[in-house]
Design a protein around this nucleic acid. Structure first.
Length: 418
RNA sequence: GUGGGUAUAGCUCAGUCGGUAGAGCGCUGGAUUGUGGUUCCAGAUGUCGUGGGUUCAAAUCCCACUACCCACCCCA
């Protein structure tokens, strides 16, 4: 039997309803913040991610789906979408378009990792980017927007974590200091951390090995190393979040994995996700456009929600809020009735009702089916009903039946008295 | 890439000391000519993950492999 490849999966109805719901909420919220949808290709030149995400990151060094095109070009399935959006921004000279560039995307990303709870090789992200301003007010609005999406999706019990990772200059000073202190206590660190001291000292900060915690606790906070502009920026972000009464926790240890982040970084965590407790991550990336070849500065900030994880968390909160069920299920008695019922179903559907129709089977069987699928009403259409112009409408919850005209049927379905 | 766990019906799982497989749910038909849910009756579905070994005999013991899950690394 051919099965879905490792780390990929089918989203079937009715579970797909939750996905639809989450996406509808996200679109509505982002439209209300005046974001427009951007659709970029699902694969790009490999060099885009190497330069954008960072050559040394795990994503680029060992997780990309890279393949050679027939003409020899190296292409890669996108592992994230910020680099693609910035590429598009530069290519189409969106800096020339009046106002901030505010775009969102929903779609699949690909990383060749070992799958586990909340982690897939093909996964979906809902993300947004606001490009063209360094203002901390934009940071706050982006965070407000993403919190709005989570809340209106029905997510409960999540926590917002924020931090500032500084700019090139102040982070470099901080990293140097970390290296200095960690080198001194390397003997007390786990294998991974000893390696991290060389590769990426910031990662030592969120090491989970208990034995390492004393050393980590003694390390300085990056917030004490921020230069004046970065300090001011972070303070302003916090003020704007306070204005909105958005609850957050400052986590100086919060480091994001992608190289391009600077200044504001944030993350939302939720308990339903196992070891991958992060529902979304985001941050500011002021130098990214230039490093991808933009001749003009294009400071930006964005986030991406792990849609798989959000859906998982929402399901945890409200397991059966989204049921698939027909408003009306039509039971035609015989071939004549089926032809009549088909036209009736079409008209009712055009008016927005969710209508099912039984193409075969005895009435008993059809009622069983309607019952199992949760249909609210069954309409029995037989030759005598067609002739008399009065159908038999059965309320499946109460078992009551009435003889209804076409007008009365419409009234029951759309009249709001049910 | 590393570690641990699991693998028996569509799903969730039981299966004793090695004697050739079961339950619940679901599915199909009937009790009911055009009336569902509850109930009753009947029925179908298995490469016991794959391959090998031990044995008169393997779902069960041994070996290898594969898949899935969880965790590490890292991230959404």
């Amino acid at each position: 039997m051919i099965k879905a490849v490792k780390g990929t999966r089918d989203i079937l109805p009715p579970a797909s309803r939750v996905w639809n719901h989450v996406e509808e909420v996200a679109r509505a919220v982002m439209h209300s913040y005046h974001y427009g949808e951007i659709r970029t290709p699902i694969f790009e030149e490999t060099s885009l991610f190497a330069r954008g995400v960072g050559e040394e990151t795990d994503i680029v060094s060992k997780e990309m789906y890279t393949f050679e095109d027939r003409d020899g070009a190296s292409l890669t399935l996108r592992p994230e979408n910020t680099a693609g959006v910035i590429r598009s921004f530069i290519e189409h000279r969106l800096d020339q378009v009046p106002g901030l560039t505010k775009v969102y995307y929903i779609g699949p990303m690909f990383r060749r990792e070992r799958p586990q709870k909340g982690r897939y090789r093909q996964f979906a992200q809902i993300g947004a980017e606001a490009i063209g301003s360094e203002s901390p007010a934009v940071d706050a609005e982006v965070i407000e927007m993403v919190i709005e999406i989570l809340t209106r999706s029905g997510l409960e019990g999540f926590r917002l974590l924020i931090n500032s990772v500084g700019c090139k200059e102040c982070r470099a000073r901080y990293v140097a200091e970390l290296r200095r202190q960690l080198a001194a206590s390397a003997a007390n660190l786990c294998q991974d951390c000893r390696r991290r001291v060389e590769t990426n000292p910031l990662r030592v900060l969120d090491c989970k090995v208990p034995e390492d915690q004393p050393v980590i606790d003694a390390l300085p906070s990056i917030l004490d190393f921020l230069c004046e502009p970065c300090k001011t920026h972070f303070a302003a972000v916090r003020t704007y979040l306070d204005d909105r009464a958005i609850q957050y926790e400052i986590r100086p240890r919060l480091v994001r994995g992608l190289d391009y982040y600077m200044r504001t970084t944030f993350e939302v965590v939720h308990g339903a996700l196992g070891a991958q407790n992060s529902v979304l991550g985001g941050g500011r990336y002021d130098g990214l456009a230039e490093s991808l070849g933009s001749k003009v500065p294009a400071p930006g900030i964005g986030f991406s929600i792990g849609e798989d994880r959000l859906v998982m968390s929402v399901e945890e909160a409200q397991p059966d809020r989204h049921k698939d069920a027909a408003d009306l299920f039509i039971a035609p008695m015989g071939d004549n009735a089926l032809r009549h019922a088909a036209l009736l179903a079409r008209d009712l559907r055009r008016n927005g009702a969710r209508v099912g129709i039984a193409f075969e089977g005895k009435l008993k069987r059809i009622l069983e089916l309607a019952n199992k699928t949760g249909a609210r009403y069954v309409l029995i259409v037989g030759d005598n009903e067609i002739q008399s112009g009065a159908y038999t409408l059965k309320n499946m919850a109460t078992g009551e039946q009435e003889s209804v005209s076409r007008e009365r049927l419409t009234e029951v379905l759309y009249g709001g008295n049910h």
